[in-house]
């Protein structure tokens, strides 16, 4: 099953919950962090289109 591995956000208030949250100041920095986390966690980055990037570890890949 897919599992949220991490969240990279621009707005600390917009997210909460069980996954590690990374707060960044700019969209550019957010992309960079998400890129690194993708390689580190082997999880794919998805854009929720509200300034939040979520790293999801898909079960069978």
């Amino acid at each position: 099953m897919a599992k949220v591995a991490a969240i990279v956000t621009l707005d600390r208030e917009a997210v909460g919950g069980g996954a590690p949250i990374f707060v960044e100041q700019s969209r550019e920095q957010q992309e960079k962090t998400a890129f690194l986390l993708e390689k580190i966690l082997d999880a794919s980055v998805h854009d929720l289109k509200n300034g939040i990037l979520v790293l999801v570890k898909h079960g069978d890949k």
């Binding site: 992309e31 998400a34 890129f35 794919s44 980055v45 998805h46 854009d47 990037l53 979520v54």
Partner: peptide, 8 residues
């Protein structure tokens, strides 16, 4: 699918 990173 949804591809989040502009690099990808």
């Amino acid at each position: 699918m949804n591809v989040g990173l502009t690099a990808n």
